[in-house]
């Protein structure tokens, strides 16, 4: 319970806090109530990461294919026999190698650009979310919330969205490329190398997505935290 401020002193105890579990609870509620807006923000991250994942998965497949070709060549060198199919594989691989390498680099660049664009998009939508919540933030500050509480709420919210959206984005990108490759090359490329790389890429995507969302939220969260409590009194907005 509150204790009255000592009549004599300028000393006021500082004991304002927001437990982490409570902050998480409030953040998740904020996401739920603005579900569609949150989903649109998430969709931006999801698409960016899906593109990134698909580009990286293509590289994984190319590598797996290359390994396969190398094995066949080795067999040939040892004087082994190859089927007609394998010969076609080796020939086409030799013809495509250069082109694929060039295209791969271009795609890498494109995926980085896509991630940058999606970061800017998140910043934009988080800023809008701040404007939308002017009064709510002002009210919280009137109730005694510190700047850091507001920052905390925004970061938890965006990191949660960022993480979920990145994982989903990875699944989308991964699924699309894997299905295409399955149709083109058959099951042979889905070796242990493929699964290992998929797992690694999943972690990578989640990390990149979450970190980018976090970076994109710094400025909006700062703006929200600096909002004067007087904002709560404004009738409009």
């Amino acid at each position: 319970m509150s204790e009255p401020v000592s009549a004599s002193g300028t000393v006021i105890r500082r004991q304002i806090k927001l437990p982490f579990t409570k902050a998480v609870e409030i953040s998740l509620k904020s996401i739920r109530i603005r579900f569609w807006r949150s989903m649109i923000t998430a969709a931006g991250i999801l698409l960016g990461i899906a593109f990134f994942a698909s580009v990286r998965m293509s590289a994984v497949f190319s590598h797996a294919q290359q390994t396969r070709v190398d094995e066949k060549r080795a067999t040939l060198a040892r004087g082994g026999k190859l089927s007609a199919e394998d010969v076609i594989l080796i020939n086409s691989a030799a013809a495509n190698a250069k082109e694929e390498a060039a295209a791969g680099t271009r795609l890498q660049w494109l995926s980085i650009m896509a991630l940058l664009v999606c970061t800017v998009g998140i910043t934009n939508s988080m800023l809008m979310s701040v404007t939308e919540r002017f009064k709510e933030i002002g009210t919280m500050k009137c109730l005694g919330a510190l700047d850091s509480f507001i920052v905390k709420l925004f970061f938890i919210e965006s990191c949660f969205l960022g993480f979920i959206a990145s994982v989903l984005g990875f699944v989308v990108g991964w699924l699309v490329i894997s299905l295409i490759r399955l149709a083109m090359d058959g099951v042979e490329v889905f070796g242990p190398y493929f699964w290992m790389q998929s797992l690694r890429l999943c972690g990578q995507s989640a990390a990149i997505g979450t970190v980018l969302t976090f970076l994109a939220t710094i400025f909006p969260a700062y703006r929200a935290a600096k909002m004067p409590p007087v904002a709560a009194l404004r009738a409009e907005v």
Binding site: S2, I12, I16, G144, A232
Partner: peptide
């Protein structure tokens, strides 16, 4: 911090 504490404990706001 102290202002926040004051708002939290000493003043109640109605809008």
């Amino acid at each position: 911090q102290e202002l926040a504490y004051l708002r939290c404990h000493t003043i109640g706001y109605i809008f």
